[in-house]
Amino acid sequence: MTERVLNVKVGEPLEANLSRAARMVEALELGESPAPYFGIGFADVGQFAALFTPRRWDLLAVLRECGPMTVAELARRLKRDYKNVHGDVEKLSAWHAVERDERGWVSAPYSEIVVDIRLPQGRVA
């Protein structure tokens, strides 16, 4: 697997994303090959926690440790119900945290997942 890092940003302002995209476009227009950037963003911690539940982190850990496998095998290794694991795979797949190949096998394609949580600024007393 090539080195791919998934950057998960929570509470990052839209301007930061737009700036990152503009820098990538600028580099491409100059004929440069910018490093690939894989990222997903969440408005707040609640939205992040709704996707990345403890069971889904366990799922990702098994995939990273054992490599690609079927959902049935993943459910067996996790000692969980197939239907629930399938649902978790669907949710994580929709956000590109896991991938399915042409055989339907599931993998965690990232060498690293970096989570950056920016809490809302509090008001000063």
Rank of each mutant, 00 (worst) to 15 (best):
A61V: 04
D58W: 03
M1W: 13
M24V: 15
R20A: 13
H86Q: 12
L119H: 08
L14A: 01
K79N: 12
I40A: 02
T53D: 11
Y37M: 10
S111P: 01
T53H: 12
Y110T: 08
H96G: 02
K79E: 07
N84L: 14
R76W: 04
K91M: 13
V62Q: 14
E26L: 15
R4V: 07
V114I: 08
D116T: 15
P54Y: 13
V62T: 14
V106I: 14
V71D: 03
G41E: 12
L30R: 15
I113M: 13
E26V: 10
I40T: 10
A16I: 06
N17R: 05
A27T: 11
W57S: 08
L92K: 10
V8H: 06
G67Q: 13
V114R: 15
L92W: 06
P54F: 14
D58I: 00
D88K: 03
W57G: 03
E32I: 05
G11D: 05
A50W: 08
R64T: 12
N17P: 01
R118H: 14
F48D: 07
S93D: 01
R23T: 03
K91L: 15
R20S: 10
N84H: 11
R123F: 08
K9W: 13
G104D: 00
A125V: 11
G31Y: 05
L14E: 01
P68L: 10
P68D: 13
A27H: 08
G104F: 00
E65C: 02
A16G: 02
E65T: 06
E12T: 00
R77G: 11
L119A: 10
V89A: 06
